[in-house]
Each structure stands twice: as C-alpha cells, then as structure tokens.
Amino acid sequence: MAIPSILLNFLFPPPPSLFVTTMSVIGISSLTNAGFMELKGKHMQYSKFLNVGAAKKENEMKLSSRNGMLWFYTPAFLVGLASLLVFHDQDQRFVLLASALTIHFLKRVLEVLFLHKYSGSTGLETTITVTLSYTLSTATMIYAQYLSRDLPDPSIDLKYFGIGLFMIGIIGNFYHHYILANLRKEGEKEYKIPQGGLFDLVICPHYLFEILGYVGMACISQTLYAFAFTTGTIFYLTGRSCATREWYIRKFGDKFPKEVKAFIPFVL
C-alpha cells in the first residue's frame, strides 16, 4: 500500500505483508461503516442498545452483560501479554506498544470484574463480532510493529508524545467509568443522566478518552495499520456517541440538558 512521501516523516513504510495491508483496509472500512450504522439507528447490540434498532432475534443465545464484556476484552489482553512473553529482544517501540495494549485490555477486564454494574445481557452474535475485532486488531497491530523492526524509523519520533496521550486516555477513561459505576446504588437498574467530570459537558467522555488512548498507541507505533485502525475507531465511537446522546434525549426528554454534547465539549 503506497502512502504519500510526506507521511513517511510520521510513519514507518508499510511492511511487505498482504495480511497487514488487507487488515488495514478491513479495519478502517468496517469500523467507519459501523459508526455510520450507529448514526442511522442500526446499533451494535450491547449495553443500552440491546434490541434497539435491530430485528429482535427470539432464539439468539444471550450472555449476561458481565460475561459478554469479559469475552470482549480477555482474548485481546492475552494476545498482548503473550507478545511480551514470546517475542524476546524486541526494540523499545515494540515493547511500549505491546505493553500499552496489554495494560489497556487488562484495565478493561478488571473494570468488568470489579467496577461496572450490570442490568442486561449481550447477544452472542455481537459478543463474537466485538471479541474478534479487538483480538484481531491487537494481534495485527503487534505483528505490524514486529515487521517494522528493520525498516527505517520515521524522521519525526512520536512515541513519547504517544505515551503521554495514552496515559491521559487510560486515566480519563477509568475516571469516567468510575463515575458511571457509582450512578446506581446497590440493586438499582434504571439509567440516570450522568453528572460529574466531563459528563457536565458531554455524554460520552469515556469514549473521548478511549480515542485519546488509541491515538496515543498509534503514535507509539507509527505504523500505517495502527493509524488506520485508530481512524476507524474514531469514526465508530463518534457514531456511537451521537447515538447515545439521542438515546438520552428520547429517554429523558426536557430533563436532559441540551448544552451537553456527544463527546467533544462545546463542539459535537
């Protein structure tokens, strides 16, 4: 996959791998399409959007939300951990990227086990789709980094900037997940309008910080695949955030503060 020469200041040359090239195209196109579907009201079937905007499948096997989310994140965490144990003597950038991915998904697993509160279920089809997306993207990002080890480094080194963005993203994401988890008292299942932190400005600040975390990992990596997947993730979470805001407006009506945006304060 050829890229403009100016981008080679920021990116490693694409490795000669049909698999990575194919996954780059699939990643950005499938996630962008998923974001567009969210805007059209055809949602991924989990959390508050279970059975919303899709034909109800009476016989579809369902998992509890907790077990579904564990499936979302655990295989990707294991891929990241295995890459650190199996690929010895790698360069600093590889170790930083694999560590960031491992920490990201370990955090998500720990949140599922010890932080989040649950009130629903997740369809098996959605569970498989999301699990494959996270697992394959994690493996491909690490593999693309491995293939780039002998390629010339980009002239502009973004990895330390990326570490900073990743840390801001993971801390901000956890903080707003903590606020969400504490909205409900023990035994409560009803949704409430979140307040506190950036929830006073946007309804999905946890998505904003998740994007910052992925941009940070893309800057650590500086491979074309990492930036392609991150771009697709931005499109998907933008669509999901806008759909979430519309869901709150429909559910709470005039009680929902109209000045609260989707996920970018004062803008979107």
Score class of each variant (00 low, 15 high):
Tyr143Phe: 15
Arg66Gln: 14
Asn67Asp: 11
Leu180Ile: 14
Gly162Ala: 07
Ile156Lys: 14
His104Val: 04
Ser119Ile: 01
Tyr175Cys: 14
Leu180Gln: 13
Ala82Arg: 05
Leu106Val: 05
Leu136Cys: 12
Lys159His: 15
Val130Asn: 09
Asp91Ala: 07
Glu58Cys: 00
Lys107Gln: 13
Leu183Phe: 08
Pro75Trp: 13
Leu110Trp: 10
Arg66Cys: 04
Met69Arg: 09
Tyr191His: 14
Glu186Pro: 00
Ile171Val: 14
Leu183Cys: 05
Asp157Ala: 12
Glu188Arg: 05
Glu60Tyr: 09
Leu113Cys: 12
Phe161Met: 09
Ile142Tyr: 05
Phe105Thr: 04
Met167Lys: 02
Gln90Trp: 02
Ala100Lys: 12
Ser137Asn: 15
Phe174Pro: 01
Leu151Gln: 12
Ile179Asp: 06
Glu58Asn: 07
Glu186Ile: 06
Leu97Glu: 06
Gly68Lys: 02
Phe94Tyr: 15
Thr102Lys: 07
Lys57Val: 08
His104Glu: 09
Thr129Trp: 09
Ile156Arg: 10
Phe87Val: 08
Leu132Gln: 08
Thr135Gln: 08
Val109Lys: 01
Glu125Ala: 15
Val95Arg: 14
Thr140Trp: 07
Tyr178Lys: 15
Leu106Gln: 09
Ser121Gln: 15
Phe94Ser: 03
Asp157Phe: 06
Glu111Lys: 10
Phe87Asp: 01
Thr129Gly: 05
